[in-house]
Design a protein around this nucleic acid. Structure first.
Lengths: 345, 345
DNA sequence: CTGTTAGCGCATTCAC
DNA sequence: GTGAATGCGCTAACAG
């Protein structure tokens, strides 16, 4: 530590020139004698010179870095979104730093503060399931730093966001269950703090309504997405006097958990219990039977979030109208709802 | 943009005092009149003051941030390691930024440069499968910024690293296959740029040797971990005149791919083909038959990496002796190598 | 083509 | 207990 960082002054001194010239040469400025430039570049390489981004950012009030905050990244969803976003940002010369809030409101606030303190130029975020207060994001807005939400969005902030059509995806999933003969369809929902969770629940409800099926509160359970507990709720549903003949789960991990429980209880999926998930986790195609699920264009979510952020970054102070992108979902039918006809495999 | 960021000077002016006092109050320094301090704190809150970490870092030559570079984070392994590392670093007041090299050498170099430019205090890294030149990491060393490798380590740098006992894990996996009667055991290995890949290959070899089995080059295939190609190699192996009766795969995704191919070809796993993976991906327990695999203490890898980094960060300039931690692995036996006895499920 | 000067926002001496 | 002055490393006017 404390090993003196080589600066442009060191280079300037070593070469007997001024630091301005060094700076110009290093930043690829014109107006530098070709020979001088070469000497500077050589010397810089020789002494391991690395520009100090801190100083530059302090000066230019621009870091060239955007932050992404995600609540988790164990399931494939968030990593894929991040990759999509990162690709686009990198193309435009932005650096991306990723923060992991771990579904903790406190950590999320700390992340936001750290990113604000390090003066990121923009922020892409999907909030935790605990987040009810969005003040830590509103600060960014007030300071003119663009924010884009995705997946889980904040409805009372006037910011851009990227979502999928959760309502319609859920609707079609439940419709599919009805059309294949199910009448008692349960829904293992997410916490009502999450917009996507609420929208999926509404899609579920409306599908039942539209097909004249009763909405049985007994069959709707909202839980905190903690997989350990999914276990309890699925068993609870299956132990009901009139158990469901189908389950629409808030996401694939939950659905896969349900699928395993059903199998372990000796139920036949899809005959005794049909199951539908959400997101098309790669695991859904590997398991047996395959899991019917509502696919999301995951990579594209990240891309779109990046596009919007870039647009907003470019627009600068000008009054930028927030955009709200809704991407389509796609029902993928597999063995957990429909028996494969022989020969299909 | 360009909305003037509120600084301590703004606060000082508003209160008719000097910025020094404001600075002292804000950093929790002693020697500030209690009343003055309160006025300053109130004003700071009122105007949304956020300290500019860039300026502080520039001044103190310390950012309080460490970087983590990982080659991918779609599989569960790297995210879990990151979470483990992040927990520890956060406890000690460090901020963690994550970079994703996407298995691209070029991106990795860019990441390293960016982290260096933003003056991270330390670096935790697992390099890409393309990385043969480690100059972009050696710069950190030369500048006195501690580096800790994990999982995939650089052997010709004198730095700390955290690995698992890949050799022994592989050895015991292959031993298990031999002890359960397999004689033609194939190995779908990783690229020889990766230390863990090489160590696992050695473990495989030595197990065969120790049990007097021939090492058949035909049964050893090193591939680039690109899952699309696993397909080709597995089929190639199964099409051999004398196909293998067991496969030890470099990691679980590869093993799962193999398992699916075997099933699709109508083979019975484990009778016709036994399969072992590496890492105990959660998917391994879900699939049927369950995948026998060599488990790694994933979370602990991250923790240990963080511990070492923190120790090194504390040691500062003092000559710090690099540590090399090797964590144990654990063979988990499932249905892909051993038929469950009835009743076991 | 090159040198001089002036800050970016802040913590930290040193005075008082 | 407080203010004034200094400089972290750099870029961008401004003069030659």
């Amino acid at each position: 530590m404390a090993t003196h960082q080589t600066t442009i002054i060191d280079i300037a001194r070593a070469l007997g020139i001024s630091k301005s010239t060094v700076s110009r040469a290093l930043t690829g400025h014109a107006n530098v004698n070709e020979k001088t430039r070469q000497r500077i570049l050589d010397m810089a390489a020789q002494v391991d010179y690395q520009r100090n981004q801190l100083a530059i950012s302090l000066l230019t009030n621009r870091t060239g870095t955007v932050g992404i905050i995600v609540p988790e990244f164990i399931s494939f969803f968030f990593p894929k979104v991040i990759i999509g976003a990162q690709e686009e940002m990198t193309k435009s010369g932005y650096n991306v730093v990723i923060c992991h809030s771990n579904e903790s409101y406190e950590t999320e606030v700390a992340n936001a503060k750290a990113l604000l303190a390090s003066r990121v130029d923009g922020l892409i975020v999907s909030h935790t399931k605990e987040t009810r207060n969005f003040d830590h994001f509103k600060v960014f807005q007030r300071k003119g730093i663009p924010v884009v939400f995705f997946n889980r969005v904040c409805e009372d902030m006037n910011v851009s966001n990227v979502t999928v059509d959760d309502y319609n995806g859920a609707f079609r999933a439940v419709e599919h269950l009805i059309q294949t003969g199910r009448r008692r369809i349960a829904h293992l929902a997410g916490p009502d703090t999450l917009t996507n969770s609420r929208n999926r629940l509404n899609g579920y409800r409306d599908a039942l309504k539209q097909y004249g099926l009763p909405i049985d509160p007994e069959l709707i359970i909202a839980y905190d997405l903690n997989l350990d507990k999914a276990n309890i709720y699925v068993n609870h549903l299956l132990n009901l006097p009139q158990p469901p003949d189908a389950l629409f789960a808030i996401n694939d991990p939950t659905a896969l958990e349900a699928l395993n429980i059903a199998k372990r209880r000796g139920l036949c999926v899809p005959d005794d219990l049909a199951i539908v998930g959400f997101s098309d986790d790669p695991m859904s195609a590997l398991i047996e039977p395959g899991l019917t699920t509502v696919a999301q264009p995951v990579n594209e979510i990240g891309q779109q979030a990046a596009y919007i952020l870039l647009k907003q970054l470019l627009a600068k102070g000008d009054d930028f109208q927030p955009e709200r992108i809704v991407l389509p979902t796609n029902l993928i039918i597999r063995g957990s709802t429909v028996k494969p006809r022989s020969g299909d495999l």
